[in-house]
Write a protein that binds this DNA or RNA. Structure first.
Lengths: 203, 203
DNA sequence: AGTCGGTGATTGAATATTCAGTCAACAATG
DNA sequence: CATTGTTGACTGAATATTCAATCACCGACT
């Protein structure tokens, strides 16, 4: 098994996927502000003109790219149904924090942050991220509700707690990508303390 | 008192301040990706060339602008020494959430988010935001330590809790500016629940 | 089997636009 | 007069986008 980003085939068959990978590489390398069609073309083994054969504009390409990325991200979240709710929560957060801290993903994470920041002035971006958030939040909410039914968690407002948890993840990601020396270990530890003191029903 | 953003004089005497305001307006209107010297000049009642009389480059202008913004932000955080620690915490968060939710500040918040996102690929930006975070986090940490000494709070790791609180604020801000329908009321309510269950020493 | 016609993929060069930065000149002010 | 503020026109480098022209393949027709 070759070492590579787990988001892409080593040799993408599909043209679209090849374009997505080229965009990903260019975005990681140069950042959103310096992302040009030329640079995407440079990471692409076909000509840059070909990009316009598949997309109407740079903007259309980027919108498609964002959808592609978010879809893949949703695909990577762990979904074991087996364990107890509190364990599922912890496993999920372990996964998320591992991704945030993974040095190999640093550039990707930064790129996602930049992409998301575009939502501030781009509605189509904003809608996509909002949908992604909703999906993610629902998964968390499910786990919390399950935990309540299992008698493991207190009878909290599951939606409200899920909102908070997603906000924390978002804040941690944002900090990790835009701050030097963010103390994410502290946040992770405190997150467990939060779950313990707020959710766990110790009887 | 004329209605306006509280960040600027209605008629800035200082040229620098006028440039800052023009930059702010251009950034709010077009977003960081489409922020050009031309557009800053358009919001400026003097010519765009004059900008180069005051700054060596667009980059230098933007760096100065960021410093200007962060300075103003630090100036607006409330610092009453009087009350009990838990009240000070709540007052502080009320202030922050009011700013996040204030419709008049929406553009400002978005502008800050976009600026911060630039830190992903710009070191000088990142350093400035990191310094700002540190300052903010210290204030929160002070309050928590004070609360512990007052016997109001449990003997938690103040630095760790402060990290979490800053992360939550950051996440809330990020969501407010990049998501449609973010449920910030839920986050605010849950934040109180967190403080209650994790910090408050009920004896 | 072999040829013809069509279709989508692909390319390199050309075009039109945008943008940061410069400059020489003009205006105001002391 | 000298200094400082101010301007509009200008430039060269990028950048997005277009376009005319190949190329590779495939199905139909003889």
């Amino acid at each position: 098994m070759p070492k590579r980003t787990d988001l892409f085939e080593s040799d993408p068959d599909d043209t679209r996927e090849a374009i997505m990978k080229a965009t990903y590489d260019a975005l990681s390398k140069h950042g959103y502000a310096d992302l040009t069609i030329q640079r995407i073309g440079d990471e692409f083994d076909k000509s840059k003109s070909l990009l316009y054969h598949h997309y109407d504009s740079k903007d259309a390409l980027l919108v498609d790219f964002l959808g592609f990325m978010l879809e893949r991200m949703e695909g990577t979240i762990p979904l074991e149904e087996a364990a107890a709710a509190d364990d599922r929560l912890r496993v999920g957060f372990d996964h998320v924090f591992a991704e945030i801290l993974d040095g190999d993903r640093e550039q990707f994470n930064r790129a996602m942050t930049e992409l998301r920041a575009q939502s501030a002035h781009d509605d189509s971006f904003r809608e996509q991220f909002t949908r992604n958030d909703r999906y993610f939040e629902s998964r968390v909410q499910d786990i919390i509700e399950e935990g309540i039914q299992q008698g493991i968690f207190r009878e909290v407002d599951a939606e409200q707690v899920a909102s908070m948890l997603v906000t924390i993840i978002q804040g941690a990601t944002f900090q990790a990508t835009t701050s030097t020396e963010p103390d994410l270990d502290a946040v992770r530890t405190e997150l467990d303390a939060y779950i313990e003191s707020r959710l766990l029903d110790d009887d």
